[in-house]
Computed example of a mutant assay.
Amino acid sequence: MPSIDKLEELFEILKNLSSTLDLDTLLKRIGDAAERLTNSEASSIMLIDEDKQHLYFKTAGGEKGYAVKKIKIKLGEGIAGNVALTKQSEIINDVSKDPRFTGKVDQQSGFQTRSILAVPIIINTTDGGDEVIGVIEAVNKKDPTGFTEEDKKLLESLAGVAAVSILNAKFSEDQRNFFTNVTELIVSAIETIRPKYRERYWKMTQMATLVAKMLGIQPRSEEYRNIYFGTLLHDIGYLSSKLKFEMDNADVFERTKVEQSHVIIGAEIVSKISLLKNIAPIIKHHHENFDGSGYPDGLKDEEIPLGARIVSVVEYVEELKIKNMQTEQIIQFLTQYSGSKFDPKITEIVKEILITMGQ
């Protein structure tokens, strides 16, 4: 039975694992936890490859961890391969006496393995069975007595939670990949309607996120994500068939007012999509002016969402670039409209970026 101290440490580790859905971060935490719980020199996490026939190193701790990530191990080969195949944990306190130990990883990494505790990472399947998705290894117990049954139970407990966390992280990663692909399709559709902006939305987004970083916004934060997608999709309202119909049927005097409604329509579109609803304010207000003279609501100063203030400047810059204006001219216009049309702080940052890019 694991000691109370070890159980408390395991509980804290499990709480820490549940706080991230980034797969690489999660696996690094699991590996670090395996080393701490078992008092080991190093650790590794291997996952089952897509071919279902091999394990590959997804993460490896210790000084030589970087060297093993390209190695693949066939199921049934070596200690980890046997653990994956049999779904049974193994304690090997002297690998030199175990014929299954091939030394292949040591040869390529320069690391010297003396002892291994290997535990399968198992998930429950929908048909009531189970499936191995990987193996956790703790390597070289620091205590000369070697790995114990207590170590095995602790690592099996960690593996059980790790299995669920890894699945959740993979699902989240798949969702993000799908979401990114759908976003790219939407941008392509907007570019079809507004061909002069082809490739321009990506350039605007690149500059907007650089501005965000220079404002101290962390790249992994929700605010940064909103600025990224808010910039990329700020003209999504142009995809509306209603807007196209009204613009086609508006006279020359009404057309400008009708076109301005793209910000409201765009905000309405994304507000109905759970993954995009937080960028609705950026889309709705990216044509507001810093002095309150913009549309649709006449907001001013910091009433205007930060993301919208950023989009306003970077979109203007891209408009001038389409007209083949030189950097010096663009900077002059930005200076002219700073404080009236644009947020002065953001304007200065964009000018700094333009000067740096022009060097």
Rank of each mutant, 00 (worst) to 15 (best):
Q206W: 10
Y66P: 00
R36S: 13
S40C: 09
E150Q: 14
K284P: 01
D151C: 01
P219C: 05
G61C: 02
D5W: 11
M357I: 11
E137L: 09
N226M: 11
Y56R: 10
G146C: 07
H262C: 04
I73C: 01
S3H: 13
D94A: 03
Q107G: 05
T231D: 12
I48R: 14
I45D: 08
E12Q: 12
F229E: 11
D251H: 11
R309M: 07
V263T: 15
L7N: 05
T25D: 14
L306K: 03
G237H: 05
D106V: 01
T356E: 15
G237C: 06
D32T: 13
K242P: 00
I133Q: 07
Y337K: 09
N140K: 01
H286L: 03
G307S: 08
K244F: 14
L334H: 13
V311I: 07
E352V: 09
G129H: 00
Q88Y: 03
F333W: 11
N181A: 14
G76C: 10
I48V: 15
F111M: 06
E348L: 13
N16L: 14
F179H: 04
V182P: 00
P219F: 08
D51H: 09
I13S: 02
G266D: 12
D248G: 12
S18I: 13
R255T: 13
Y238H: 12
V313G: 03
Y337D: 09
S18P: 00
I264Y: 10
S293V: 03
K213I: 08
A42Q: 06
Y337V: 00
T335K: 15
L14M: 09
K272W: 12
A163I: 02
T356I: 14
G160V: 05
I310A: 04
L26H: 11
V187N: 01
D127A: 02
G78M: 04
T145E: 15
K72A: 01
K15M: 11
T145I: 13
K28T: 14
L276H: 05
K97C: 03
Q336P: 00
V258M: 09
G128E: 09
E222G: 03
L23P: 03
K52R: 15
L210Q: 13
L306E: 02
Y337L: 10
R220A: 14
K152C: 07
S293E: 02
D251E: 10
E156W: 07
A250F: 04
Q175M: 12
M204P: 00
D22W: 08
I30M: 12
V161D: 05
V252I: 15
G78W: 06
L210N: 10
V161N: 04
L154S: 02
L306S: 01
K242A: 14
N168C: 01
V263M: 15
I71A: 01
I45Q: 10
